[in-house]
């Protein structure tokens, strides 16, 4: 927890930073993060645009019932947020962590 610990880390950081496997992993992970962010961002802004420009569409009933199209879309957005979060965590737990641990282990040994 001190600066001394930080200094001994520097060689390790340089070695890991130059490792092509690290670069590949970080690039892949960042791409996943940006893609998922773009999906949720676009979905939400699209939803707002739909509300701003075409309220009637969201008010259309589904089939002969009372429930409107807007209900599954709105609730779907909530579920999408949870699902994408879960997807990222599952992916990171399953692949990213193990791959990163393997890279770090190689350089620490």
């Amino acid at each position: 927890m001190t600066q001394e610990a930080g200094r001994t880390d520097e060689a390790l950081i340089a070695a890991v930073g130059g490792d092509p496997r690290y670069i590949e992993l970080v690039t892949r992970r960042a791409r996943l993060g940006w893609w998922l962010s773009a999906i949720i961002f676009t979905a939400f802004v699209g939803y707002l645009a739909l509300i701003a420009f075409d309220k009637a569409l969201l008010g259309m009933p589904i089939g002969n019932g009372v429930t409107s199209i807007g209900i599954p879309i709105g609730l779907g957005l909530i579920l999408l947020a949870i699902a994408l979060t879960g997807l990222y965590v599952a992916y990171a737990n399953r692949y990213h962590d193990a791959q990163m641990a393997a890279i770090l282990k190689d350089h620490c040994a």
Partner: peptide, 21 residues
């Protein structure tokens, strides 16, 4: 009625972005 749902979604969608980035 429906308008309350717009609010709820707005409050939630920041969380995934906080995680991803």
């Amino acid at each position: 009625g429906y308008d309350g749902l717009i609010y709820s979604t707005g409050f939630l969608v920041g969380w995934p972005i906080l995680l991803f980035l």
